[in-house]
Design a protein around this nucleic acid. Structure first.
Lengths: 233, 233
DNA sequence: CCTCATTCGAGAGCACTGCTCTTGACTCGG
DNA sequence: CCGAGTCAAGAGCAGTGCTCTCGAATGAGG
């Protein structure tokens, strides 16, 4: 998709990418609000105002980085899923969870950007939420397959859905997995929030003092969650 | 503790409190890094440099607000626990969870301050972690009581602890609840991360598009968690 | 090939930030 | 009552995001 335009257009595309790369680099070093347009420009040998030819504001740059981060995380999760034999449903489910954690640990500032506290007055533009849905969709895909096989065996003893929640789950199911009963989806959402809750706690230092090197705890929790949602062992 | 000092000391204490109050107010309106020392000073009718007589840096002010936030959250959780009859263990457990969510929703910027992405280069000082432990301690207290009564009935089917994790849990137990077996503590930690994961997702807008008015989902999840940890019904 | 609108980088400048240093007043304990 | 300690104020530094203007490069239409 690079060939078909003028030299100016190609230069523009390249510079846009370079700006994002440098911004991402600074993000990794100094964190989310250590990012400075002027510093990015300086590093690229241009003047700060030139950046505005490519990104109309700092927020727009941030948004681009956010979208990229969501996409990268989605790719990582998808890859982890596909790396395993299709029949190994529990393995795939757990692999996705571990992929999320691994990616987050390897790109902590980008993770903080998308799952940390939202930046200043900035509200996530529409475009980001499509990318944000990638990880849950991968999880749902595994879930659907297990459901189709009839091997889903959720733990007992776990709460009944209120009418409103059941309705919400049914609406959600219509969009992504019509055949899944609300009970299954509700548990999946619990798993989803748990997954990111653990990763955030680990990365944001909330786990210090309890289960600090948290590899084993994470593996344990992922196992518990697989049981909760009923992944066959 | 106010009486016993000179007028200057009292003035100092008052001004310190006023600065914190105004900072907290601005935090609530503009969010964590919309907070400006100059703006605080302006609002208080003083000049920016005067603030430095009371807080040596912006980070120190932030730290003070963080400590206060942890304390307020701890107080809210404790109060919720004590509001219920001592025998209603499951109710108390769930009330603590709901109190955390309610406090977070009512003080979203303060919540973001303590459970969102850590600020710039800032690392949480020792002082904060003691306050941060309040909520888990309240949960552990309920857990110990249930354990003492022998009414704890965890769900089956849930993973075995690896050696390392069991060791971590035993170490942790020694500090807070020597009689609790590592299995119980591990599940409690899962609940703890789940609780804050849900609250963060809700407040940070990650739930939009799935279970958005999340009251019912939250109640459901809290119920599931109570089962997981084995709270008697 | 030439023209002219569009696009671009550079620079100056605005309003803001956190923070430091100095100066001249105020307060209070010995 | 006076000197040490504390205070608010102001100027100033280095940095920020962002806007505007001005020459120069570019490239599409005539």
């Amino acid at each position: 998709m690079n060939a078909g335009r003028t030299a100016r257009d190609r230069a523009r595309a390249e510079l846009t990418a370079e700006i994002k790369d440098e911004a991402r680099r600074q993000l990794g070093v100094y964190g989310a609000d250590g990012l400075s347009l002027r510093a990015v420009a300086r590093e690229l040998g241009m003047v700060s105002s030139a950046i505005y030819r490519y990104f109309p504001s700092k927020d727009e740059l941030l948004t681009a980085l956010i979208v990229d981060a969501y996409r990268a995380l989605g790719v990582a999760a998808t890859a982890a899923d596909q790396r395993l034999p299709e029949r190994d449903l529990r393995g795939r489910w757990q692999a996705v969870c571990h992929a999320v954690r691994d990616w987050a640990r390897a790109n902590r500032h980008e993770y903080a950007l998308i799952y940390g506290s939202p930046v200043p007055g900035y509200t996530a533009p529409e475009i980001t939420i499509a990318e944000a849905n990638k990880v849950p969709l991968v999880m749902v895909r595994v879930l659907r397959q297990a459901w189709a096989e009839g091997t889903l065996r959720p733990t007992r003893d776990s709460g009944v859905l209120s009418d409103g929640l059941a309705e919400q789950c049914r609406t959600l199911a219509e969009a992504v997995a019509p055949e899944l009963p609300p009970e299954v989806l509700a548990r999946a959402i619990v798993c989803w929030t748990q997954l990111f809750g653990m990763v955030s706690f680990e990365l944001f230092g909330q786990l210090v003092g309890s289960v600090d090197p948290s590899d084993e705890f994470f593996a344990y929790a992922v196992d518990v969650l697989a049981d909760l949602v009923g992944m066959p062992s």
